[in-house]
Design a protein around this nucleic acid. Structure first.
Length: 915
DNA sequence: GCGATCAGCT
DNA sequence: CACAGCTGATCGC
């Protein structure tokens, strides 16, 4: 263990692992040949290596010795606990093991790992390994435990923090090495106690408790003249600090068995003879093995029998035991839990060497990493599983989401020819899918077109899934397959090709502008009895995406489409059934600016004087029946916020629930309407649709759910005349001409004339709803950007006060995000549109945003500067790509974000209105 | 037969 | 639900 176990002589140790490893190995077992020495190409990292233990873009494995292989010779051990060192042993030959000196000594002495392969590194000293900077910083876990900080080589280094197991302390904030990792690319986090239910006292408090209790026992026993045995349960390694503190502050030595003494000696504690002894008679404080005083899981069950045995064995008549658990088994207001039986007493002391929930959040907040990668409680170390996703949710808002976005876009831009996903792609993807459905399997699982002849390109489900993530939702599986095949399995290329065709098509189509809206097929079976509905089908559906478009894709793509599919069916996979009506219903027309439209600000229940005024007027006319007219005077009579919340909720769900339900739901959500709405709709989604309609409808997407939901309403409307629906339906109508205005090219759109309301009035929901509806169905990127642009231009021109609410609705954010320097994903889309409409630059908007802290203010400022109606600059292809990507991201995000329902609410309202 | 992995228990 | 670790059975080369 000679040279390696010693700390590097020079200040800046630089290691090339392959060289060092080979020489070490050679000295260890001369005959041994390692693949490295054959100068064979380093094998790829196998998929079996859990991402929780692999530093992206490197061959470094942390605490993942079971997964060692020829692909790496650089391994890191954060601390000496078996679940982390598992895989290491006397026969370890796979590579160098980097760890701290105490850990190194334990490895060599306890596990007999060949010392030649152990590289001990000093805490807080930066070394270089294969070009990467590596620093170990204290983890406040067990002795020798560290976190590893990795810095990749290169001009734009990636930075990764792997905590191993750790307990956060405030002092970490001042560690200079950690400070350099603020904003790290990823934080591999010990999520052992990543749940709000885990709140425990500081180690100091717990130490205090143990020390005081022992002192007290000693006093009492001394006075009574009896001998009392104190037993402290510990691990093989860990919680030594309790022992040290007890010895120091109670002025006694501590008995340990020989095995523990050995460990302590190796750790460097053994020298202190005044602290530890193997002589049981020398002290009344003894260390005892874990799980002897009782079983700790699933809840603590004391083993008084065993305890009594020990008592008798060691010649005592009374025993006080301490079990320092990481867990608060019982919440006692005063003091910690105590179990007593006869002369036996056990104190359960919450002494944790892992971070509590709050500490975890503090740490993440401090480091503000681009993402958090949970290392504990993750099934198979897979970051795409629901466990990992759930864990990550605890850090929403603390991580640098803005950076995530950038990375995602970067990854997309990377036109690498690799069909397989790199590790960071997976990470980026997981991040992107954070809220989402399961991430399908990477390659090995199901290869679809694997023919015996093997002339076929292998198209895996993973690739298809990935591609479909990049493409609009209406692209079906066949098309995706075709795209992949024609690009030889390259996902990025496939996406590129697709967008290119999209662009071409759009440009082509745009020449002969004015697409006539198509009529929509309506499947009556889906609608129940609905003569009305059918009669409306010739109405143009503004949201219909041109069918030629799909056809075009088909033609351009060397894909074998199922010939029996109708064009319509191609549109969005096979979701036709539930899908038909929505657009077909857009008969109604509202007069532009009609006072009956729900307003945007109304949604937030935050009314400016002007807004609230017209709002109340709106309500009276809009919906006289709703809630027995209770709403009529809502803004005037009902002041109490709770009641307002109830009404708001009822309005949002459009009376699909009783007032009682609304009240109880709001109670559950503590008055948070948004959460309540979300709960309500997620329930619908899960339970499928309320009443009627027993046909089974694919519920692949939220849209379909909504469609179906609309259906239900339609049925009511026509046959049973449910009060609420009817009103919106009848009274809100939209001039058809207005419908298409939003989708005019930017240069032709006049924000004031083409808007559906007039200056000074609160902007209607409809304005946004319509835009989103169009945007959602529009595949062309130029057009979507243009529509958003137009939308904001009208808002800016007519109702600047509503810009901010609109932004919130667009981004699902209820308040500006002051945490991230930049706006979030959804926000950036909005910014793009604002950029166009304001004729100003993104950086300028950004700057102003920082100044004003509010996009609405930014918009107003721009407006005052007369820049509002400046003609937008033409879009470059690059802009188009970028916007589409953002849209795509946004779409995913919307679909999957279960926490916020505003968008779906908006959509829903929009649909209803436009019916 | 040996080592790695796992279930069960402490 | 997931603090650590041992032991003996099982799997697999």
């Amino acid at each position: 263990m000679a040279s390696l176990l010693c700390s590097p002589a020079s200040k800046s140790l630089s290691v090339t692992t392959s060289t060092l490893f080979l020489s070490s190995l050679a000295s260890l077992t001369p005959a041994h040949t390692h693949p490295l020495s054959a100068s064979a190409a380093t094998p790829p990292v196998p998929a079996s290596v859990p991402p929780t233990g692999l530093i992206p873009n490197s061959r470094f494995l942390v605490d993942a010795f079971r997964h060692a292989g020829d692909f790496s010779v650089a391994y890191f051990l954060s601390h000496f606990h078996s679940d982390h060192y598992a895989g290491l042993g006397p026969s370890w030959r796979r590579g160098l093991v980097f760890c701290t000196a105490p850990t190194a000594r334990l490895l060599a002495s306890v596990l007999s790992v060949p010392p030649e392969l152990i590289v001990s590194i000093d805490i807080d000293v930066r070394i270089t390994v294969d070009g990467w900077g590596v620093v170990a910083v204290d983890a406040n876990h067990c002795p020798g435990a560290v976190q590893f900080l990795f810095t990749s080589p290169g001009p734009n280094p990636e930075r990764y923090v792997h905590t191993g197991d750790f307990r956060y302390t405030h002092s970490m904030r001042s560690n200079p090495n950690l400070l350099e990792f603020v904003g790290a690319d990823a934080l591999f986090l010990d999520t052992t106690y990543c749940n709000p239910k885990f709140a425990f006292p500081s180690q100091e408090e717990s130490l205090e408790y143990v020390v005081n209790t022992i002192k007290q026992v000693k006093e009492e026993s001394g006075a009574a003249g009896e001998r009392v045995l104190c037993l402290i349960a510990t691990y093989v390694v860990g919680k030594e600090r309790i022992l040290l503190e007890v010895a120091r502050r109670c002025g006694c030595t501590i008995h340990v068995d020989s095995r523990k003494m050995e460990i302590l000696t190796v750790l460097g504690f053994g020298g202190e003879k005044e602290v530890f002894t193997e002589d049981a008679s020398a002290t009344d404080v003894h260390v005892i093995g874990w799980n002897i005083l009782g079983e700790t899981w699933p809840y603590f069950r004391p083993n008084f029998v065993k305890m009594k045995e020990i008592m008798v064995e060691r010649g005592y008549t009374k025993v006080v035991g301490f079990v320092p658990t990481g867990w608060m088994y019982e919440t006692k207001k005063e003091g910690f839990a105590v179990r007593v039986k006869d002369s036996l007493k056990i104190h359960l002391v919450p002494y944790s060497e892992h971070s509590s929930y709050d500490e975890l959040r503090d740490y993440v907040k401090f480091l503000h990493p681009k993402r958090v990668i949970p290392t504990v409680g993750v099934d198979g170390g897979k970051l795409d599983g629901k466990e990992a996703i759930a864990l990550q949710k605890h850090f929403v808002g603390l991580v640098d989401e803005t950076a995530n976005k950038h990375e995602f876009l970067m990854a997309f831009n990377r036109r690498s020819a690799h069909a397989s996903l790199s590790h960071e792609d997976v990470l980026a993807k997981c991040c992107r899918e954070q809220d989402g459905e399961e991430f399908a399997s990477l390659p090995e699982n199901n290869s679809v077109s694997e023919l015996p002849g093997n002339l076929e390109i292998k198209i895996t489900e993973g690739m298809k899934k990935e591609l479909s993530d990049f493409l609009p939702s209406w692209v079906n599986q066949d098309q995706i397959q075709g795209l992949l095949m024609s690009s030889g399995g390259d996902v990025v290329q496939s996406a590129s090709a697709f967008f290119e065709r999209e662009r071409d098509f759009f440009e082509e189509a745009n020449v002969s502008n004015n697409e006539k809206p198509k009529s929509v097929e309506i499947r009556t079976s889906d609608l129940g009895s609905s003569a009305d509905t059918n009669s409306q089908q010739e109405v143009p559906s503004f949201s219909q995406k041109p069918m030629e478009h799909s056809a075009k894709l088909v033609n351009l793509t060397p894909v074998r489409m199922k010939s029996n599919q109708t064009k319509k069916e191609r549109k969005r996979g096979s979701s036709t059934v539930s899908k038909s009506k929505k657009k077909g219903k857009s008969t109604a027309s509202t007069e532009a600016g009609g006072p009956k439209q729900p307003t945007i600000t109304n949604y937030f229940g935050r009314a400016t004087a002007a807004a609230s005024k017209s709002e109340s007027a709106n309500k009276v006319t809009v919906d006289p029946h709703q809630n027995n007219g209770e709403n009529n005077n809502q803004s005037m009579d009902i002041v109490e916020s709770h009641k307002q919340g109830v009404n708001q909720l009822l309005q949002i769900v459009d009376g699909s629930m009783s007032r009682e339900s609304a009240i109880s739901l709001l109670e559950k959500t503590k008055g948070d309407v948004n959460v309540a709405v979300d709960m309500f709709y997620s329930k619908i989604q899960n339970n499928k649709v309320p009443d009627s309609d027993k046909s089974i409808v694919p519920q692949n997407t939220q849209n379909e759910m909504i469609d179906k939901y609309d259906n239900t309403n339609m049925v009511h409307n026509s046959s049973q005349a449910t009060p609420k629906m009817q009103n919106l339906y009848v009274q809100t109508s939209v001039a058809q001409a207005d419908l298409m205005n939003i989708s005019l090219p930017v240069e032709k759109y006049r924000p004031i004339e083409h808007a559906c309301w007039t200056a000074g009035q609160p902007a209607p929901y409809l304005h946004l709803a319509r835009t989103f509806d169009l945007v959602e169905r529009e595949k062309g990127k130029i057009k979507t950007t243009a529509m958003l642009c137009n939308m904001f231009r009208s808002l800016l021109a007519l109702s600047p006060d509503d810009v901010l609410p609109a932004v919130y609705l667009c981004t699902n954010k209820i308040s500006p995000d002051h945490e991230n320097v930049e706006l979030n994903i959804g926000g950036s889309l909005v910014i793009s549109a604002m950029e166009e409409s304001l004729g100003t630059s993104k950086s300028k908007i950004h700057e102003m945003y920082k100044t004003y802290g509010d996009l609405g203010d930014v918009a107003q400022e721009c407006r005052q500067n007369q820049t509002l109606l400046a003609p937008p600059r033409p879009l470059s292809v690059r802009d188009v790509y970028s916007t589409l990507r953002k849209l795509r991201w946004w779409e995913c995000w919307e679909e999957k974000n279960s926490c916020v329902a505003s968008y779906s609410v908006l959509q829903r309202n929009g649909n209803e209105i436009s019916c």
